[in-house]
Nucleic acid binder design. Structure first.
Lengths: 79, 79, 79, 79
DNA sequence: ACGTTTGCGCTTTAGC
DNA sequence: GCTAAAGCGCAAACGT
């Protein structure tokens, strides 16, 4: 029946849209990896950059809380 | 010293480029999430779609692995 | 031939030893997860504990270098 | 204050427990590494053994995934 | 809302 | 030394 084909087509189109977006995400992840490789090639520490990016993505007060918590834990073990 | 400021500026610019790409990735993740929400709103099963998308990409990977394994075996018997 | 059987048995035993050790590792990983769950239940921040454990696993001078580097990067972006 | 010291001690003990388990895991990883080295020394192909071990565990996983997918499809058509 | 489970990306190690 | 693979941690997603 035509209605079934139509429904199947709509579902197929939806799935294909999802696949395209997943591909985009994968592609973007590769671009990010390339950027960090470029950072490394220019003498920067990629791991440290990632760390700072993560810190900056936090809200200010969240970051301050995190810093304080880590200080407490480090003090507890003396390092 | 001016050199230090220059170096710090370059580092800052690099980190900001990284941040922008991370933001893009986050934005894309939200888009994907929205797409699945739209699927759900249209009566589709988001989980099933995710499963199918994953299977399609996984089969390729499995096939590649199989091809590689066959290559190993062929090499082992020299043919 | 008996020699072939012997050789095959030895290989099989070896593979089974490998599998057992992989299982042990998996089991240990579960134990670690449980421990962090217990930490959380007692009001500790599991993520912060992981962070400190990682820092402590570094050599002292490596950790100091890491701390210094992060300070430089954080200063560059002002956070 | 004494209460603070007590709390810090408890935290320290917890972190040390975590560290011990991490050490155990690291030690086990080394044991596995040694086992593969022994395999190589005995003329076995370590890579092939790893591959076989991985395949054995993967097949189980794949079968489970397949069973789950069949369940989804059966549910979709109500049988 | 919470805990569990799963997928995804980063890190590190092994092999070439 | 570089590329490929595997372990590991984190975070989002699903069910309770």
């Amino acid at each position: 029946m035509a209605g079934d084909n139509l429904a199947a087509d709509q579902l197929r189109l939806f799935i294909e849209r999802c696949e395209r977006m997943h591909d985009e995400r994968k592609s973007l992840a590769e671009d990010i990896r390339d950027l960090y490789a470029e950072a490394k090639a220019n003498g920067y520490d990629a791991k440290a950059i990632r760390h700072v990016v993560r810190l900056r993505s936090m809200e200010t007060h969240t970051r301050q809380e995190w810093d304080a918590l880590v200080e407490v834990y480090r003090a507890a073990v003396g390092c």
